[in-house]
Design a protein around this nucleic acid. Structure first.
Lengths: 231, 231
DNA sequence: TGCTGTGAATTCCTTCACAGCT
DNA sequence: AGCTGTGAAGGAATTCACAGCA
């Protein structure tokens, strides 16, 4: 059961957001055409994307908003709680920690970390900023699932390895750097033998976004209307 | 001369970043293999990506770091100055306005905007926060090229239209919403007839990044090591 | 020999057309 | 009749193999 396009996952996130908007406006029915228009893709695409994961509609009728929303949340793993630490409490890290909407969808910030003594000990969003030395114990003790990485680029690899070594399952990397995956080893890797799982890295890079924008302004004919970026 | 993959542009940004790192370490030569390893892609990919834009290497020798860097900057439009306004001066907007590295590469913040009276009039990074009412005149007067959009999602479409109407050429949208392109019309559209150019929209969405991460943690076998994301 | 540049092959993703329920 | 779900066709993007220079 391999082979779901990465782009499909990004679009599912978009569909989910649209469904939330519809629900907020108390619209209870939709269709592949309606979703497609709102998402800026084709109706074929919507149906194909959904078909990877099941049959959520009714022929001749369309989709029921709450049902499709629930199913997409299940598919995307958003009906469970995710414990998150943020590493790097500079301006970006603070903005991330305070971003409204992150706390929806069961993303719970449980710990904040930095190495700068000026920052460690301060309180952000009601949580104390801890020193990185405490990370391994904290991750194990608090069942942390993900780390959000908002450190300067030259410290990103080290911090990513610290997170991976402490045992997180995924890293959302905000630093404009490629994290080398082969150096990411989870704590207790030797215990896991058969069912070895790599640490997942997703990137959010807005410097890259700025540069892509510059390119497409200069070369508008090369621009395709798409959902994400890249990424 | 159509058909350069969007993913290629994202990767060019990555290559450029690597070249900057090499230059900072006074490494003056590289190769498709070296770049590939650092970028987490194949050497074929690197060469193909570069080949879309020219011949920058020497057979048998590889690439000269400063030359390839210069060429990539030219291709990406980073050897010119881009005037930027930031719309939405909440925590995220402030983090963006203060982000180090944005001011490299000739992205110059020339204006900051909001509608909240508590924020308008305050100073961020030495610039006064102006009211959105002033946007159209400001964009024309200061030759603004791009707008960075960091407003709440329910105001993103309106703000995007305001930016487009004021005459910016591109929008970097940080709000978790799809901007409907058909409503973006540049000021003076009637004047431009033949050489009509759409406003380019690039998205940077870290809520989407969080959700993709959740999915790939639950489905690690579906994860492909890639540069962006989407997106 | 070593590494780039590039047509050809392959794989992957999207688009299409229509079968299948309601 | 209307809209979903899906195998098949088509189109892109990546991978490959090797020709072409230094």
């Amino acid at each position: 059961m391999t082979g779901i396009p990465t782009a499909t996952i990004s679009r599912l996130v978009t569909y989910l957001r649209i469904l939330e908007g519809l629900e907020a406006h108390e619209i209870s029915r939709t269709s592949s055409n309606d979703l497609a228009e709102r998402a800026g893709v084709t109706a074929f695409q919507v149906r194909k994307d959904l078909a990877y994961f099941g049959r959520f509609g009714t022929r001749g009728m369309g989709y029921t908003v709450p049902i499709l929303k629930r199913e997409l949340m299940r598919v995307l793993g958003l009906n469970q709680t995710w414990n998150v630490v943020v590493v790097g409490m500079g301006r970006l890290g603070q903005a991330i920690a305070n971003y409204p909407g992150a706390s929806d969808y069961q993303f719970q910030y449980v710990g904040l970390f930095d190495v700068n003594p000026d920052v460690v000990g301060r309180t952000v969003r009601g949580l104390p900023v801890r020193h990185m030395d405490e990370l391994p114990e904290f991750v194990r003790g608090h069942k942390v699932d993900m780390g959000f990485l908002a450190v300067p680029p030259d410290h990103a690899q080290d911090a990513a390895q610290a997170l991976a070594g402490a045992g997180v399952r995924g890293i959302l990397n905000f630093a404009p750097t490629v994290i080398q995956p082969r150096m990411l080893e989870r704590a207790g890797q030797q215990e896991i033998s058969d069912e070895w799982r790599a640490v997942i890295v997703e990137n959010v890079d807005f410097l890259a976004g700025m540069k892509r924008l510059a390119f497409y302004i200069l070369n508008p004919h090369l621009n395709a209307v798409d959902t994400e970026e890249t990424e």
